[in-house]
């Protein structure tokens, strides 16, 4: 595989193999189990050859893949009786953030996530997953609801960033984000965060902090979009790839820097290639994290949450 090759070209072979598997799966062909296993092994092998050479730009393409599972895909598959709760009780309901309650492993939990649209119409309606202040205020309202009744909070992060618009500034985009950070710091229930796609700066952080921060293998998380960084520091849109590499936006970089706690593996080719496998992987990690957190006394939980972020940063001291 050539380094500069577009990810969408890379994934073609995998998609072809995956289609063969899916066709076999519904067929009556004798020995199909073995054949599927063989094809799966072939996919794994192909992908294993690609992974070490994936560029940061290709990771960004996977994270933004139009077929990538979004928050509502996870909620539909992992949560029973998910009940969406709308509005911030202040100004409006922001469709770029979905929030609500549902049963997870037989217990009520609160779920909050960015939601991008799948169709053009839905994308526009959901503002491409870029929240306005009311989205963050809705998220906090539902977190406070969870705190009141002792439900854990699970957040799914997937946004290009908080929306840069006139109304967003008028209604206090910065204040909404800042206030969420401050409030989550002392929220007296477990909070688990999973970056499922794009972790776009402050817009991601505002619902992206808690006790355990996990990240899908090919998601990315950054202080600024590679495009924004290229425009400001390089003043050149052709420098996007360089910016992406320099920013260290991959899950493995962030794990090394102590910013995330765990990487959730994705199926070969990325989450969109195999929804079932992705949901299983995410489900396992969330439930394991919750189990551990729910055993902790709340005061210990809050102390550890404070220390977790307190330690973040690299500097020298003399």
């Amino acid at each position: 595989m050539k380094k500069e090759e577009d990810f969408y070209k890379l994934e073609k072979d995998i998609l072809l193999l995956k289609k063969q598997i899916d066709d076999l799966d519904v067929s009556e062909e004798p020995g199909k189990k073995e054949k599927i296993a063989g094809l799966r092994a072939q996919i794994e092998k192909e992908w294993a050859g690609v992974v070490p050479h994936l560029t940061a730009t290709q990771i960004v393409q996977i994270a933004r893949h139009p077929q990538r599972p979004y928050t509502l895909d996870y909620l539909t598959n992992l949560v029973e009786d998910f009940t969406e709760l709308h509005g911030d009780r202040r100004f409006a309901d922001d469709p770029a953030i979905v929030a609500g309650l549902g049963f997870y492993k037989g217990k009520t939990a609160a779920f909050i996530g960015h939601q991008k649209g799948r169709s053009t119409r839905e994308r526009i309606e959901r503002n491409f997953g870029q929240p306005n202040p009311e989205g963050y205020r809705k998220a906090l309202r539902v977190m406070k609801l969870a705190e009141k009744f002792g439900f854990p909070v699970i957040t799914l992060i997937d946004t290009p960033g908080a929306y840069p618009g006139i109304g967003a500034e008028e209604r206090g985009q910065a204040e909404a984000i800042a206030n969420n950070l401050k409030e989550i710091a002392t929220l007296r229930v477990p909070v688990v965060n999973v970056i499922i796609g794009e972790g776009g700066s402050g817009g991601a952080l505002a619902i992206g902090v808690g006790d355990v921060v996990m990240m899908l293998e090919y998601a990315f998380y950054s202080v600024i979009s590679p495009e924004g960084c290229a425009a400001i520091l390089w003043k050149d849109q052709s420098a996007v790839a360089k910016a992406a590499e320099n920013l260290k936006i991959r899950a493995k970089d962030l794990l090394e820097l102590g910013i995330i706690d765990k990487i959730i593996p994705e199926p070969p080719g990325g989450a969109h290639i195999d929804y079932g496998q992705t949901f299983k992987s995410v489900d396992k990690h969330i439930s394991q994290a919750l189990k551990k957190l729910e055993q902790k006394p709340v005061d210990d939980l809050l102390k550890e949450r404070y220390q977790k972020f307190r330690k973040m940063g690299v500097f020298s001291e003399k």
Binding site: G202, L205, S222, L247, K248, I259, M312, G313
Partner: peptide, 9 residues
């Protein structure tokens, strides 16, 4: 990079 972002929290 993201280390700066974490300073917000």
């Amino acid at each position: 990079g993201a280390l700066s972002l974490m300073q917000l929290m």
